[in-house]
């Protein structure tokens, strides 16, 4: 185990995690590849979705592929178009015997999959009262992040860019404001398409990142998972070390005296 991460674990709702990389389990070519990738990046929190069984073609359950791992299974409410649908999905996940943790997603528009802030807040209030550890997926809106924190959410999960877009931290300035004000962990979720994007979020001071598409759809998902792990650790270490700010002009690294002239 990496000694720096042990010094300063990620704590969500009182639970301690050594890994600051959360991974999604969608879009992998097989469940076995997903499992190897999750193991390769030492993820401790993995997300899953709930869907109707296809009665004409029942496939294996994703939980089977995660069995025997040290994972906290974090079900999402993907597919929910409003608060009521999200609440229903959360309760179904809990009924399946999972711990009452939920990644709250309310995305009414399938083209952009952007979260509905009002419905997300409404669902969060109900689910927190119902005993869930609520991790809401949100637009990078600092005011909304504060409101969600006030109703008892365990984290906030602002998006870097639309889900699956691989565009990186396009919401950088707003995430910076969220990071300044938040007293719960900030998990940058969605749109991180390369390890450098994950490192950027971590360098900014994000508590963790969640990655799915960039790992699952890589030519070699297991190697990409490892690359993301290194990037997250690197970015976190850089944040801890304290990045010097950018300058408008040059500042010599070598002494400006004693020239041979």
């Amino acid at each position: 185990m990496d000694p720096t991460s042990l010094q300063e674990p990620l704590v969500i709702a009182g639970r301690t995690f050594q890994s600051r990389l959360l991974v999604g389990t969608g879009k992998f070519s097989s469940a076995a590849t997903m499992r190897r990738a999750a193991d390769a990046c030492a993820a401790e929190i993995v997300t899953v979705a709930l869907r109707r069984v296809d009665l004409d073609n029942p496939q294996d359950d994703m939980l089977g592929a995660l069995a025997g791992g040290r994972f906290l299974i974090l079900p999402n409410t993907s597919g929910a178009r409003d608060a009521d649908e999200a609440i229903r999905l959360a309760r179904m996940a809990r009924a399946a015997g999972l711990e009452p943790w939920i990644k709250l997603e309310v995305t009414p528009d399938p083209r952009w999959l952007l979260p509905d802030p009002m419905e997300t807040l409404r669902a969060a209030e109900v689910l927190v009262k119902d005993g869930f550890v609520v991790m809401p997926y949100i637009q990078a809106d600092p005011v909304l992040a504060r409101r969600l924190e006030e109703v008892g959410c365990a984290t906030v999960m602002p998006l870097g860019a639309p889900i699956g877009s691989n565009k990186g931290v396009r919401t950088r300035d707003s995430i910076q404001i969220i990071l300044e004000g938040a007293s719960v962990p900030v998990v940058v979720d969605a749109g991180l398409g390369a390890p450098s994007h994950a490192a950027e979020a971590m360098e900014m001071g994000a508590s963790a990142v969640l990655v799915n598409t960039a790992i699952a759809t890589a030519r070699d998902p297991v190697e990409m998972a490892r690359a993301f792990r290194l990037a997250v650790e690197s970015g976190r270490a850089a944040w801890r070390a304290g990045l010097p700010g950018a300058r408008e002009s040059a500042e010599a690294s070598s002494p400006l005296t004693g020239f041979l002239r």
Binding site: G26, T47, L50
Partner: peptide
Amino acid sequence: LELVRFVGGG
């Protein structure tokens, strides 16, 4: 009846 189970998701 609704019969659901866990699938891959992000």
